[in-house]
């Protein structure tokens, strides 16, 4: 299998996660916030163009970083929702519509997660003939895999095929982009059962997930 580019698919946005990004953890959101959220959500298709590029590599192609331990093959992927949404957010912030800007930004973050979920499922489907078990997806910048490792992903995948590039500080442009890897193993990964936040070392993160979401849950 070579490099695959997928475009023009539709994604779902998990409203609960958007609310969590806005700070609602236990309490219900008030009606006017919910209303504005729904309204902005309706406009999403115009601002979001889901795209992803991915490929499956032999373990010899990736480096010997401990995050790939035990993998036979490694799937790498870059996803994005494109630049339109963040341009809209900047315009809203500039004109003083801060709340709309903040809500749209949170929707954009979840839309990016939606693209990553879709690509993740796509990858899992494609590897089924290989009889390998996928790990959870994991990204540079989390836990022990440093953000500088973005360079590995971008050296193996053409980010520009979906309009994403890496700047010198290893930040992806457009901003609402995600890169990830999935280890393909001979045996099911025991880490699958753990909440992904378990592996992150960020102290006091206000967005920490408390539940253990099942793998590949369609959002």
């Amino acid at each position: 299998m070579g490099i695959k580019i997928i475009k023009d698919f539709s994604i779902t946005v998990n409203e609960r996660e958007v609310l969590r990004l806005l700070g609602y953890r236990k309490k219900e959101a008030d009606r006017s916030t919910l209303q504005l959220l729904k309204e902005k959500e309706k406009g999403l298709p115009e601002l979001v163009s889901p795209q992803a590029v991915y490929a499956i590599f032999d373990k010899s192609k990736v480096d010997r970083h401990p995050v790939f331990k035990g993998a036979e093959k490694v799937a790498l992927c870059i996803c994005t929702i494109g630049p339109s949404l963040e341009k809209k957010v900047s315009a809203l912030m500039k004109e003083g519509s801060l709340l709309e800007g903040v809500i749209l930004d949170a929707l954009g973050s979840e839309a990016a997660e939606g693209v990553a979920n879709y690509a993740n499922i796509q990858i899992c489907r494609e590897i089924s003939p290989l009889h390998l078990f996928p790990s959870r997806r994991f990204s540079p910048g989390y836990g022990k895999w440093s953000i500088e490792e973005q360079r590995l992903i971008f050296s193996l995948l053409p980010g520009d095929s979906i309009g994403v590039h890496l700047n010198p500080s290893c930040m992806m442009v457009p901003r609402k982009s995600i890169s990830f890897a999935i280890n393909l193993l001979f045996h099911p990964d025991p880490r699958l059962k753990k909440n992904p936040c378990h592996f992150c070392q960020l102290p006091h993160c206000p967005y920490k997930k408390d539940e253990h979401p099942p793998l590949n849950k369609e959002k």
């Binding site: 806005l22 003083g96 903040v102 809500i103």
Partner: peptide, 15 residues
Amino acid sequence: YFLPQLVIAAECMKA
């Protein structure tokens, strides 16, 4: 209050 209330209040004040 949550982030949205904070933000909208700042927005009102700015206006």
